[in-house]
């Protein structure tokens, strides 16, 4: 027995745990929309990571001689009212978008998975309390909640940071950008976790009572193996779809926040505050609205195509 474990053959390594994923990948490859979405996401991610090396201009550098220029070869997406290169700002905005989307989704997913799994596994009274919490959170209008959080917390936190700085002279406390991110991440995660909690709970409940779980137990498999090879793969499809769609939603949500003035603050470039700036002048300079809006739309569509494709790919029953 130990021989098998300490001395895996090459066939072993390649064959076993990756089966599901390799097959899913083969199925995904056949789905054109999903591959299109994946391509866009990979491109945007690449741009976000290598942005500083790609942009011809710094996102902050102003050129007051070249304000509000239409797209041209030297400024691909034109320039804004301060003469900043819009292309460079969109590229930097992708960093904000990905950062916000990934962090928010990760937090929301962790909270949602933990609460949903507890509710599903342990049942009442945990289930009742957690579902009550979920319903409560979902029943409060999202943007209202965020505006309230921002309005009530931003100033106290800023004051506290200021006081800390005075006391310690640690320059960290001067970086107000962290307040922005903290509040944006925190409040977005706060409104984003309930769907994950519901989904995980439903998955746990339904998979736990499936006959194939009893059948796996009748084979004498350990709980760990049943969890890893029977419960998780069956629960994963819908969860991955939700995460993929959630990333897109988080990007749109961040833009909505910026639009309302509760998002990431200028001068940090975000597609949201570019769109809200662009909206004010779109009759005169449509490119200022079109560029960030198009990229945001593209990203959001790409995530939802990929999500749908992953759902079909991870669920061999669904495909022909």
């Amino acid at each position: 027995m130990t021989l098998v474990q300490t001395n895996p053959t090459i066939g072993d390594e390649q064959d076993r745990p990756v089966n599901l994923w390799r097959d899913a990948w083969h199925r995904l490859k056949r789905n054109k929309l999903a591959i299109f979405g994946l391509g866009i996401i990979v491109l945007l991610a690449f741009v976000a990571i290598f942005g500083p090396y790609l942009t011809p201009y710094d996102f902050l550098s102003q050129d007051l001689q070249a304000r509000n220029q239409a797209p041209s070869l030297s400024h691909l997406f034109g320039t804004d009212d301060l003469g900043r290169d819009v292309f460079s700002r969109v590229v930097y905005g992708s960093r904000t978008a990905f950062l916000v989307a990934i962090v928010v989704t990760a937090i929301a997913l962790s909270i949602g998975t933990a609460l949903g799994a507890v509710a599903g596994f342990f049942g009442d009274p945990y289930d009742r309390v957690i579902m009550w919490l979920t319903d409560m959170t979902m029943s409060v209008p999202n943007l209202l909640l965020v505006v309230v959080i921002n309005a009530s917390l931003k100033t106290p936190i800023a004051r506290w940071m200021e006081a800390q700085y005075m006391a310690t002279l640690n320059p960290f406390y001067r970086e107000t950008i962290w307040i922005d991110f903290l509040l944006v991440f925190g409040s977005m995660a706060l409104i984003s976790w309930p769907p994950y909690a519901r989904l995980v709970r439903a998955q746990v409940l339904s998979i736990r009572s499936r006959p194939y779980i009893t059948a796996a137990m009748a084979l004498g498999l350990s709980n760990r193996i049943i969890m890893m090879r029977y419960v998780v793969p069956n629960a994963l499809g819908p969860l991955i779809v939700a995460v993929s769609a959630g990333l897109g939603t988080a990007m749109v949500l961040e833009s909505a926040f910026s639009f309302l003035g509760v998002g990431v603050n200028p001068p940090t470039p975000s597609w949201g505050n570019m769109i809200s700036d662009g909206l004010r002048v779109w009759q005169h300079y449509p490119h200022l609205l079109a560029a960030p809006a198009a990229v945001l739309g593209l990203a959001s569509v790409a995530f939802s195509f990929l999500g749908d494709g992953l759902n079909d790919a991870l669920n061999p029953r669904g495909t022909k």
């Binding site: 098998v4 053959t9 066939g11 064959d15 006959p211 796996a216 084979l219 029977y230 669920n315």
Partner: peptide, 27 residues
């Protein structure tokens, strides 16, 4: 219809008890 794991190939499902009870190699 419902007693087999839908996301696992039948070969793998047959191998399951052999791997974990008998400690057989995959081949």
């Amino acid at each position: 219809m419902t007693s087999l794991n839908p996301v696992m190939k039948v070969g793998d499902q047959i191998c399951e008890p052999l791997l974990y009870h008998r400690g057989m190699s995959r081949q």
